[in-house]
Design a protein around this nucleic acid. Structure first.
Lengths: 344, 344
DNA sequence: GTGAAAGCGCTAACAA
DNA sequence: TTGTTAGCGCTTTCAC
């Protein structure tokens, strides 16, 4: 049915080995022979079988990418970055979308192992702190390089790219202070999560450096989803000594906050300043000018893939565990400004 | 290094054939033998090689998915749908993101062919009308089932899932009319594009049915990007006999329109009614309540993948070309209302 | 019920 | 510079 190396060999009057040589640019082949072979390849529209090659070399050129939510542009951008680098290295990607489902995660690992992938890139969900042990041990037993993207350092057995959430929160808080705010609330993610703790650290550091006390009444915890921030914001607006600024630590949560502001006719930043974490393209396009801390998603994908490639070749010491920290960038759009004085 | 079927066979004291039988539940195996084999498989943590199997059976369990823009949630949702169905059928996905780049498209096809994929799902970009012939012929020469998602019927050689854009535009326009509008502008996509033409048809049909004339001055063409709609909207707002409602035919473009409304202090829907095409989650979450025609993205992915699977087994007549039309759903949020009378 | 042997399409020593 | 041969890990007749 399909054209094989044998067909090429026969028609070109050479051995399969020779065809293989021109295919892989390996070994010596007389130029004349090479041309003849190439011509036949063209004529017969032959494409070598990556499957047969993988089996023969015992080495695939496929890597696995596991994401919890492919329809979230955050992960889409990561994949975009991963894909770009993979492309350059002629690696291809088997994508597994887990919908944050434990079983699917496990199944994905099994499928990827069957495919004898070279390495694996995982972007853990926010629920990362609940990585189950079966998943982890399966991952380790795979015996192939793993790179965690924006994961948790606690999984110290894996290489990974990390975002400096402390710095991100610090920058955001500092910008609010610089704009004149002293009463700054934080709507943070789920308590105990690493990123939540880190972001609080940054918030606290900025306040302390400016001799502002961290007031418990201004510290809130949501669950990363917009409803939680919506409720918290509603509550904030009813406070007696209400803050003049809010730092909201996820892109979904900031939507909830804005909704609440809308409903209560709070103008940003006239009545309330705000800075978010991770961008929401739509808001900026329509001109809402919400400032935010921008996690470098595409870059994270790229850097992560590069690291994986390094580890792929790194057959030496078992595989050294590498870590790279990326810094989020504060993007100021005006929503952090201090315009209102009446709450002072 | 890795455990193979041979290791299992040896340790279980049977032949490789028998191991293969229990692996695939094929042929007769004494239950006692089966148990013994299974036990060894567990012990050795054996996972069969999909690569070897594919080579042997001359049949992979991989399909290719090509998208132009993985970071756009529109495509992310499609992939999600595709993935769900693929999962159920133990098919896995090699993802190719082309960034709308001709060369990458071609390269993707080459890679997929090398991988001996069973079938392919393509979501053409808006630039679909410029599908180049090299791409198309390569696609046909692959000799495997292809399913186009939201593509162009003009590529009549392929099966596909289509969205009824006429109906979508018709419903939207009709809703505006029902809300009392008579002067309804349309900000459409690139002229000559199939979807643009279809949407205009729907718009026109709704107007005609209600004895409203299509006024050329209310018909605009952008390029699907938000800047174009922004400019057009600015223009609309300066018109003498300005419309009371606007139907904007892409999710990016509606952001541009809203930006323009914002800047000119136009309240929706008090001063201007609006309906978009394809959802923008963020806007609805923050409570802007923009009505829109919702393309069934996830469903499109699911239905498309199901169709591909059908075609996979369909070894009979070459492969019949199938078409399924999906209907977008109008989601009314209030922005289509008719509140302003002063323009009447 | 089970096994021997051939073969899928390719690569990689080793010879020539 | 080219070819022979064996083998990658699995499935699949066919025979026992």
């Amino acid at each position: 049915m399909t054209v094989t190396i044998k067909d090429i060999a026969r028609k070109a009057g050479v051995s399969r080995t020779t065809v293989s040589r021109v295919l892989n640019d390996s070994g010596y082949v007389k130029d004349e022979t090479r041309q003849r072979v190439l011509k036949v390849i063209k004529e017969l529209n032959y494409t070598p079988s990556a499957i047969a090659r993988s089996l023969s070399t015992n080495k695939s050129n496929t890597i696995g990418v596991i994401v919890p939510e492919i329809n979230n542009p955050f992960f889409g951008e990561i994949i975009k970055g991963v894909g770009q680098v993979a492309d350059e290295h002629n690696l291809n990607i088997i994508l597994c979308n887990t919908d944050d489902d434990r079983e699917k995660e496990l199944k994905a690992l099994k499928i990827l192992k069957e495919q004898r992938i070279r390495g694996i890139i995982i972007t853990p969900t926010y629920a990362e702190d609940q990585f189950n042990s079966e998943y982890l041990s399966t991952l380790e037993n795979l015996g192939i390089p793993v790179v965690l993207l924006d994961g948790h350092v606690k999984y110290s057995n894996f290489s990974g790219i990390f975002i400096d959430h402390v710095k991100g929160a610090y920058d955001a808080t500092k910008a609010l202070i610089k704009a004149g705010h002293k009463k700054i609330a934080i709507i943070n993610g789920r308590k105990n999560y690493k990123i939540t703790v880190d972001r609080f650290k940054g918030y606290k550091k900025a306040l302390n450096e400016n001799n502002i006390f961290v007031e418990d009444k201004y510290v809130f915890y949501g669950d990363f989803e917009y409803e939680s921030a919506y409720k918290i914001t509603k509550h904030i607006l009813k406070m007696n000594d209400r803050p003049t600024a809010v730092f909201v630590t996820s892109n979904m949560m900031i939507l909830g906050s804005i909704k609440a502001f809308y409903e209560e006719n709070i103008n940003i930043p006239r009545d309330m300043a705000i800075i978010g974490f991770d961008k929401i393209d739509a808001l900026n396009i329509i001109g809402m000018n919400i400032s935010f801390v921008n996690g470098p998603t595409i870059e994270m994908g790229k850097v992560g893939m590069k690291m994986l490639i390094d580890n792929l070749d790194n057959k030496k010491s078992k595989e050294e565990i590498k870590r790279i920290t990326l810094f989020p960038k504060l993007v100021l759009k005006g929503s952090e400004k201090f315009i209102n004085n009446k709450c002072e």
